[in-house]
């Protein structure tokens, strides 16, 4: 959805505006680092749940499962660092940098737009609209299917990490100490952390598909926007 400011600018400049700078560099960097971290986390996470076949030889000669877990934890730290950076950027970045963390449920216009997008995805609308940032439906999914699960994965992930890091470690004090009792016991945290992975995998599937589809079918650029930061519009119509 075009923000009020964008609208004004667009109107002021007549129909010449065919590109808007949306995603600033730190946000784009975060997006791809985050995507990479999640890919590593999901792959190693899956193997933590269902390890590959046994290694031959002396235990001391191999550290395969140790490396898998190490990669998971390292990627977990990257994810956390990126997340903190992303939250910081939401304060200092442009208006679009805040969208991910907001769910304007009390804004009726937003719901109308979301309904429109839903119809568009259900092939009930012939012509798509233009958006500078995320379209409302995307925002909806981003918040519920990505932001919250990501937060959940970080909290449960570090709660599990704190168990291995032992009582007294920062992760244990900050997370394990309350997360494990809240779930009942550690096994539950594992199960939910594992389920969370699938929630995120589902999000990524839909997200990547939607990004490519919109790139082709909508009236603005998508994938390149996440690379260059510029939203390019394909036509001059409003």
């Amino acid at each position: 959805m075009l923000s009020a400011q964008d609208m004004q600018e667009a109107v002021a400049h007549g129909r010449q505006v065919r590109a808007v700078y949306v995603y600033e560099a730190p946000l784009r960097l975060w997006h791809w680092v985050n995507a990479l971290a999640i890919t590593v986390l999901a792959m190693t996470g899956y193997f933590i749940g269902s390890p590959p076949p046994s290694q031959p030889g002396e235990a001391s000669a191999s550290f395969l499962f140790g490396y898998i877990r190490f990669a998971h934890f390292a990627a977990g730290y990257v994810l956390l660092a990126g997340f903190i950076g992303r939250v910081y950027w939401a304060f200092v970045g442009n208006e679009h940098s805040r969208q991910l963390f907001k769910l304007p449920v009390f804004d009726s216009a937003w719901w109308k737009e979301a309904a429109f997008e839903l119809r568009w995805y259900l092939f009930l609308e012939r012509h798509p609209k233009k958006y500078v940032g995320h379209n409302p439906l995307a925002q909806f999914t981003m918040f519920l299917l990505f932001f919250l699960p990501l937060l959940f994965m970080i909290v449960t992930g570090f709660a599990l990490y704190g168990e291995g890091a032992q009582a007294g470690s920062w992760a244990s004090m900050l997370f394990t100490s309350w997360v494990v009792p809240m779930f009942g016991q550690s096994q539950d945290v594992h199960t939910w952390h594992h389920l969370g992975m699938w929630a995120i995998v589902v999000f990524v599937m839909v997200h990547v598909y939607a990004a490519i589809r919109e790139d082709i079918m909508s009236r603005q650029s998508m994938v390149s926007t996440m690379l260059s930061g510029w939203r390019m519009f394909k036509d001059d119509k409003p």
Partner: peptide
């Protein structure tokens, strides 16, 4: 535990 870390199950 060494077998766990090595991936020997």
């Amino acid at each position: 535990r060494p077998h766990f870390d090595a991936g020997q199950f």
